[in-house]
Structures are given as C-alpha cells and as structure tokens.
Simulated scan of single mutants.
Amino acid sequence: MQTSFLSATVLLVLITDPLGNIPLFISALKQVKPERRRKVVYRECLIAFTVLLTFMFFGREFLDLMHLTDESMRIAGGVILFLIALKMIFPSGAGHAEKLQGEPFIVPIAIPLIAGPSAMATVLLLATREPGRMPEWIGALSLCMLITTLVFLFSVKLQKWLGEQAITALERLMGLVLTAISIEMLLGGITSYIRNIH
C-alpha cells in the first residue's frame, strides 16, 4: 500500500483519535484551573510530539537492535491497529478515565492518550518503510498534532456542540476506516513476507 502525505496524516489522526478522547481529556483536566488548561494542552501535546518524533527518527536503529524486519513491523502494526479499531467500534464501556489529583503531567494525556503504543508503532513503521520521505512524515505528524491540539483546546465547546452521541458516532466511523487500513497493512506485510521466502 503506497502511503501519501494525506493518507499518513489521516492515519495518524485516526490513531490518536482526538475526538474520541475528548471525554477522557476533560476528565483528566477537571482538577486543573481553567486559566491553566491552555498551557497544559500545549505542554502535553508538545511532549507527545517529541516522543513520536523520537520514535520516527530512531525507528530504524530500534528495529536493527531488536533484529526485527519491516514485514514483522507491518504485520504487528496491522494487528495493533485492528485491535484499536475494534475498541473504537465496540467500546467496552468501562471508562478508563481515572480521577487525578492535581495537574496531569505526561501521564495520562501525552502518554498514552496521544502518543500511545499504536501511534508509536505507526510513526516507526512510516519512517522505516520509506526513510527517504522523512520530511513528509514529519509534516504529517506535525499536522496531526496541530489538529489534536486544536481539538483539545476547544474540547469543552466541541463536546457541547456535537453532543455525546455525535462524538460516539464519529468514533465508530473512524474505527471502521481504521479497520480497513489495518487489514490492508496486515495483508501487505504478509504478502511481502511470502514474496521474500521464495
């Protein structure tokens, strides 16, 4: 599957799922004073961006160190994305928004809400599969983080404007698209692996 700048951006937005994370984000910031929230959003998004950028730049070295092939990463990435997509379509209902004391720092907003294992695996996969297109991947990640930051900045207004049902419906729709992407990635990895055996 040939990944374009636009499809990489869409993929990253689907995985970070800022709209679906609005309720969790609002819950995590309940203990933070309203005047501090904007600064917290900027800080947490910057931390998440730095973490994902690190994975993007040092992905190749990580794969070499662990003796992992591109095919195994594509298959693993497809499986992870498929599981994430299933959770988006069929949420367990057991809300994992824990009540936090004080201001959240790194956990749970930057990691794992934004820069979760699936996002880390995806940027690593993009960078290792086509390292010559690194500027495109950095641009896609930057655009994704900009969208995430804006969604979180206006999270309360968005939740009121869209309503819980609309947010849930959008998350299910994003989960459906992500399911198709994960299957495509999985099939691509398996096909490439079989081709290399012969």
Rank of each mutant, 00 (worst) to 15 (best):
A127P: 01
G132F: 00
A119H: 04
K160Q: 15
G175S: 12
H67K: 10
E136W: 10
E98S: 13
T122D: 04
S72H: 04
V156K: 14
C45P: 08
A115V: 13
M174I: 06
L81I: 08
A140C: 03
V41L: 12
G132Y: 00
I75S: 10
V151E: 03
F55N: 09
V79Q: 07
S155Y: 11
L170D: 03
M73W: 05
E61D: 12
S155Q: 10
I147H: 04
F49S: 07
M56V: 04
G59A: 07
L63M: 09
W137C: 00
L100Q: 07
M145H: 08
L125I: 07
I111C: 11
L170Q: 01
E44S: 08
R172L: 10
L53S: 11
S118A: 15
L143C: 12
T148A: 06
A115H: 08
G78H: 02
L170R: 00
D64R: 03
E44D: 09
Q101W: 12
T148P: 06
E103V: 13
I109W: 03
D64M: 09
A110N: 01
L153D: 10
P104T: 08
L124T: 15
G175R: 01
C144D: 09
G77R: 04
L52W: 02
I114H: 00
R133H: 01
G139P: 11
E71D: 11
A119C: 10
I167Y: 06
I84A: 13
K160R: 15
F90N: 11
G77T: 05
D70G: 12
M56Q: 06
A166G: 12
I80L: 13
V156D: 14
M145A: 05
M88D: 04
A94F: 15
D64E: 12
G95N: 13
G102K: 01
Q159L: 14
T168P: 05
L162N: 02
A115Y: 06
P108H: 02
F58D: 05
L65T: 12
H96K: 14
L124A: 10
E171A: 13
T148H: 06
E130C: 00
E71G: 07
F90W: 14
K39F: 15
K99I: 15
P108M: 02
T54N: 10
I47T: 11
G132M: 00
E103A: 10
S142M: 14
L63E: 01
G175I: 05
E136Y: 05
I167K: 02
L83P: 08
I109D: 03
T122S: 11
E98K: 13
I75P: 10
L53N: 06
R74I: 04
I75M: 13
L53I: 05
G95P: 09
T54F: 14
D64W: 03
Y42C: 11
